[in-house]
Design a protein around this nucleic acid. Structure first.
Lengths: 113, 113
DNA sequence: TTGAAATATAATGATATTTGCATGTTTTGT
DNA sequence: ACAAAACATGCAAATATCATTATATTTCAA
């Protein structure tokens, strides 16, 4: 079992708009660098840096095919994580009526209950 | 439906060891600031800063009970996210047929070779 | 063999994050 | 009224992240 510290590093690694897009594309299949360049607006060096970061974290990997680098997903948590992010959550969690310990308390300011 | 950009901001907001711990504790119930101080090693001002950040992002909220602030979870994605992070993933995802070892294989796509 | 395509790496500067520390505010007990 | 408890806030320093630009590497094709 991977320690929680590593999972937090994983979260930090993926918490970036471009890197999420990269991972989202990779859940659909193998892609090479210039495929991403076509899809979203980012310079090639910047894209490489994001790919490199994801690889350093063991989240993705690639194989070499001629002058292409074909990237693919490696960390099994990614598809589930992407799917979770795409979920639709309408309702907020129910607020507690009062402090469970003191059974007292009001919300600050004009916040409604 | 909350746009993906916001969800990424949410990821960034929670991707911190102390903030994950805070959220993990909050999935178990309402807690006030000094409860957290007992649990993990962090100064009171720093703890307050993390709580404040989470609240700015709408992830948690609190109500006032005397001089206590009782924090609770607000964003419904958090329990699912915490649970997912605690999952145990043993196996890596299967690499595509054309693997780095053989250096062979076809790139799946119509890009020119 | 020469050039271009595909991609990586390195250096730089700008911006953001994190923490520590000092101090402020509100509430409660005496 | 006073002091302490519980918490927040403001600021500065250290550090990390990010995009940009320039350059390097490898492979393929003519």
């Amino acid at each position: 079992m991977r320690p929680m510290g590593m999972k937090i590093e994983l979260l930090r690694a993926i918490a970036h708009p471009i890197r999420i897009q990269i991972l989202d594309e990779l859940t659909k299949g193998v892609k090479c660098v210039s495929d991403f360049e076509d899809f979203f607006e980012v310079s090639q060096p910047n894209l490489s840096q994001h790919l490199s970061l994801l690889r350093r974290h063991g989240i993705i990997d690639y194989y070499v095919d001629g002058r292409l680098r074909c990237y693919f997903l490696k960390d099994p948590i990614i598809p589930d994580l992407i799917k979770l992010l795409k979920n639709d959550y309408e309702e907020e969690l129910p607020s507690p009526a009062c402090c469970p310990v003191t059974k007292k308390g009001v919300y600050p300011g004009d916040r409604r209950r």
